[in-house]
Every structure is written in structure tokens, then in C-alpha cells.
Simulated assay, not measured.
Amino acid sequence: MTGFLVALGFLTRLPVPRAASGEAAALASAAPWLPAVGALVGLLVAVAVALGAVVTPWIGALFGLLAWVLVTGGLHIDGLGDVADALGAAHGNRNRFVAVARDPHLGSFGAIAIALQLMAKLIVLAALAERATFPELAGGLVLAAAWARWATLVLGRAVPPLTEGMGSRLAAGIATRTVVLEGAALALISLLVAPVLLVALLLALASALYWHVRLGGVTGDCHGASIEITESLLLLALVAA
């Protein structure tokens, strides 16, 4: 279970033993567990939405969004902001992209991207809280969060890292066999619970193709941004279905 605990410590703010707190040297062992951690995040968000929806669907959506940010520590949405700033300033220059993404200051592009992402999740969570039963809500959110983190395994396997860092060390633990088996398992469960989420397979391929064409590589921030965008698109698919 060390790999799972490392993944839990790396991707969430949930308490884990100090020895498995997500140290860089152990990140490779965490890679196969990313979808499982995503499923746990989705379940916690679903519970928060259901509790708040006892009052109104919008309160449920607010509770769910707060749970999402608190459990993940804003890790992925921080990556989205960094990527938005970097894409806005890089103009196709990979070195410039890396430099801007590493800047700790938030620019206007990043602020706009984060605001739009939070609004998007709030709206789709409210729609789900209004329309779905708890089993439907929980199944959809668990699968959406798991699929989004499975997609980052595809990204890490298909697109080389731009720099050395957390993203590259995590990618070192991604095996093609693991990606295929976990993707097949998620697809089977989705067929039974929410078939519309099979669109995640196309989203994963589209994400990998985008970064391959745009930069020829990825950073840890690219992984975080891709997780956020994939989650929102899958939630939108659930609402549409």
C-alpha cells in the first residue's frame, strides 16, 4: 500500500503517515494509484454535494466545490492557472513557457482561467445535485475524478516531460500495461454506471495530442491543468446525459 499512500499524500491534503508523504523518490510507485485516489476524491465531493443539497442544489454545489478544493489543496487548479499564464506569454517558445509557469506570481490569464474553472464546476455540480439521485451523483463523480487522473497517466506515457521535476518522476512509474488495464476497468464500470463517461477515452487522447503539438512535452502544471479541464468536461457530459 506504500504506492497508494504516496499518491494520496501527493494528490490530496488528507493525512497520511509521514514515511509516505509523497517524497519525490517514491513518486514513481504512486503512478498506478492515481485513478484510485481520484475515485476517493470524487466520493468525498459527492458526499459534500449531497449534504448541501438537502438545503438547495446550489448549496450542495458550493459544498462540493469547497470539498474539491480543500481535499486536493487546489493542486490541479494551481497548475491550470500557471499553464494559462504560460500559454498566454510563451507564444510557442517552450523555454519561455517553462519560465513563466514556474513564476510563483499569478497573472491575468491565470486568474481568469481559475475563475472560469471554479464557476464551471459550481454550475455543473448544481445541475447534477438538482437532477441526480445520490447513487447516480456518487457514481458519476467517482468515475469522472478517476478518469481524469487515468488520463494523466496516458499523457505521461504518450508525451515526454519538458523538464525534470515531480511530473517527470511520476511519469517514470507509468507502465503501458497499467494504463491499458486500468482504462479497461474504468470503461467496464462506466458501461454499467454512466456510459457517457466513455468519452474520457477521447479526451485523454485529445489532451496528449494537444500537448504534443503545442509544446512537444509536458510539465507537472500541464498534468494539473489537464486534470481540471477533463473533470469539467466529464461533469458536463454527465449533465448532458
Rank of each mutant, 00 (worst) to 15 (best):
residue 45 V to T: 12
residue 46 A to R: 06
residue 126 A to P: 01
residue 153 L to Y: 03
residue 124 V to W: 05
residue 5 L to D: 05
residue 204 A to E: 10
residue 144 A to F: 02
residue 180 V to K: 04
residue 67 A to N: 08
residue 164 E to G: 11
residue 75 L to C: 06
residue 53 A to L: 04
residue 54 V to R: 13
residue 97 F to H: 05
residue 32 P to G: 11
residue 179 V to G: 09
residue 128 L to G: 04
residue 42 G to M: 02
residue 93 N to G: 08
residue 145 A to T: 10
residue 111 A to Y: 08
residue 218 V to D: 05
residue 137 L to N: 06
residue 135 P to K: 01
residue 106 L to I: 07
residue 202 L to T: 11
residue 54 V to T: 13
residue 49 V to S: 07
residue 93 N to S: 15
residue 29 S to K: 07
residue 240 A to V: 14
residue 45 V to H: 06
residue 155 L to W: 02
residue 139 G to C: 08
residue 177 R to C: 00
residue 146 A to S: 06
residue 2 T to N: 09
residue 189 I to C: 06
residue 31 A to T: 14
residue 91 H to P: 00
residue 179 V to R: 12
residue 45 V to P: 05
residue 192 L to W: 14
residue 128 L to F: 08
residue 239 V to N: 08
residue 51 L to S: 10
residue 153 L to S: 00
residue 182 E to S: 15
residue 17 P to L: 13
residue 77 I to D: 08
residue 206 A to F: 08
residue 35 P to K: 07
residue 175 A to S: 14
residue 12 T to I: 12
residue 76 H to Q: 03
residue 55 V to A: 08
residue 43 L to S: 12
residue 160 P to W: 00
residue 154 V to L: 08
residue 241 A to T: 06
residue 165 G to K: 09
residue 46 A to K: 07
residue 73 G to A: 07
residue 83 V to R: 03
residue 18 R to E: 14
residue 66 L to D: 03
residue 111 A to S: 14
residue 97 F to G: 04
residue 10 F to M: 11
residue 37 V to I: 15
residue 111 A to Q: 11
residue 74 G to K: 05
residue 200 A to I: 11
residue 30 A to C: 01
residue 185 A to P: 07
residue 88 G to E: 12
residue 167 G to F: 01
residue 117 Q to T: 01
residue 172 A to K: 09
residue 172 A to C: 02
residue 90 A to I: 03
residue 203 L to V: 11
residue 5 L to E: 05
residue 7 A to I: 14
residue 95 N to Y: 06
residue 89 A to F: 00
residue 192 L to S: 13
residue 172 A to H: 08
residue 168 S to K: 06
residue 81 G to F: 01
residue 196 V to H: 01
residue 214 R to D: 04
residue 6 V to I: 15
residue 161 P to Q: 10
residue 239 V to I: 13
residue 186 L to P: 13
residue 124 V to E: 00
residue 27 L to G: 13
residue 75 L to D: 04
residue 79 G to F: 09
residue 209 L to S: 10
residue 49 V to C: 08
residue 3 G to F: 06
residue 178 T to Y: 00
residue 16 V to K: 14
residue 87 L to S: 03
residue 214 R to M: 10
residue 22 G to H: 12
residue 207 S to V: 13
residue 79 G to K: 03
residue 187 A to Y: 00
residue 29 S to V: 10
residue 215 L to S: 01
residue 38 G to A: 09
residue 58 W to Y: 13
residue 117 Q to F: 14
residue 118 L to S: 07
residue 209 L to N: 05
residue 61 A to P: 10
residue 20 A to Y: 12
residue 58 W to H: 11
residue 18 R to H: 11
residue 29 S to W: 02
residue 151 A to T: 10
residue 70 L to P: 05
